[in-house]
Amino acid sequence: MAKLEIVPEADGLELWRQLRASAEAAVREEPQLGSQMNAVILSHDDLAGALSFQIARKLADGEMGAMSVREVCLSAYAADPAIVAAAEADLRAVAERDPAIRNLLQPFLYFKGFQALQGWRVAHWLWTQGRETLAFHFQSRISELFQLDIHPGARMGKGLFLDHGTGIVIGETAVVGDNVSMLHNVTLGGTGAERGDRHPKIGKGVLLGAGAKVLGNIEVGDYAKVASGSVLLKPVPSGCTVAGVPARVVGCPTAAEPARTMDHTLADVVYDFVI
């Protein structure tokens, strides 16, 4: 399929137009996919309709059918339009930060990180409404299907990029700011000793490298960077890069917006203090 122009700063209507164009191009190239493209995307009037259908066809099981899952999604979107706005921002984030993307069809239909995140957004809405059992059902299905385990009680912003997604674990009291990027096998967990508020607080624009483990009720400041494979147990100042086991500061300041540039390189200078 020829690569279609992607405009990361597009508004919701333009994103929807681009997604439909990608689906139409897919049908022309692979007619066997025509039924799928029509059911999931082309038969709907907007992103909310298509997204609810996609989540429903993925999360449905013997206990809860697709129609029931879709009704829950549509109820969430109607009650809180910010959920769809966050999904649009997530889609723009993938378009902006993933060099492998060919068109918006890829994340919408095939990228685990994006799909799991959209399912979690509905689960989180259920959690805020006191519907904890159904929220846990969504969490369980997302974990089974996509190999991501995000507690419905966690709080996460918009414009998130969960690259690859496999193995990501985010605990109940974790907070993730806007425009964060994280790769596979990232853990935002507790130390195993605390109760109550026990998970990390990740600032806006943070980049979390593959396999990074951030443990405990600690703050990672805005636009910080946690290198791949690091184990972080102490707070990180805004704009700093940390690396190692245990993690220590290896550079301040880091790139202005590491989550957007996806720059995983480390500074040549090694600091002689730990955090």
Rank of each mutant, 00 (worst) to 15 (best):
255 A>N: 13
188 L>N: 11
49 G>C: 03
141 R>A: 00
6 I>P: 06
54 Q>S: 15
31 P>C: 00
160 L>P: 01
21 A>L: 13
54 Q>M: 08
201 K>F: 08
254 T>I: 02
162 L>C: 08
5 E>L: 10
97 R>V: 11
190 G>S: 14
24 E>V: 08
172 E>A: 10
11 D>L: 02
96 E>H: 13
159 G>H: 06
120 W>H: 15
20 R>E: 15
74 L>C: 09
44 H>R: 09
195 R>P: 00
56 A>G: 02
145 L>Q: 03
214 V>C: 10
231 V>G: 07
30 E>F: 03
157 G>H: 04
214 V>N: 12
272 D>E: 14
28 R>Q: 13
12 G>D: 14
245 V>C: 04
73 C>M: 03
66 A>R: 04
270 V>T: 11
82 A>K: 12
57 R>T: 12
153 G>W: 11
33 L>V: 06
49 G>L: 05
147 Q>F: 02
259 A>E: 12
129 Q>Y: 02
140 S>Y: 00
72 V>Y: 01
256 A>Y: 01
192 G>W: 02
76 A>L: 03
265 T>Y: 10
125 W>I: 01
19 L>P: 12
233 L>M: 14
190 G>Y: 11
63 E>F: 00
115 Q>P: 02
66 A>W: 02
56 A>E: 06
186 V>K: 06
260 R>C: 01
260 R>K: 13
35 S>A: 02
91 L>Y: 12
248 R>Y: 01
140 S>L: 00
108 F>C: 14
206 V>P: 08
63 E>L: 03
253 P>W: 12
161 F>M: 14
228 S>G: 15
40 V>C: 05
231 V>A: 09
228 S>R: 11
140 S>D: 05
171 G>T: 11
82 A>W: 06
37 M>Q: 07
74 L>V: 11
174 A>C: 06
43 S>T: 04
78 A>Q: 15
122 V>Q: 03
179 N>F: 05
69 V>C: 04
4 L>R: 12
59 L>H: 02
193 A>I: 10
41 I>K: 04
178 D>P: 01
219 E>M: 01
55 I>H: 03
190 G>Q: 10
83 I>L: 15
83 I>E: 12
21 A>P: 06
239 G>L: 04
244 G>T: 08
155 R>I: 04
48 A>Q: 09
39 A>S: 09
224 A>F: 01
244 G>R: 05
113 G>K: 07
173 T>C: 06
63 E>W: 01
98 D>A: 12
187 T>F: 07
100 A>C: 11
160 L>S: 03
246 P>W: 05
194 E>Y: 07
78 A>I: 00
183 L>T: 09
159 G>L: 06
24 E>F: 03
20 R>P: 09
66 A>L: 01
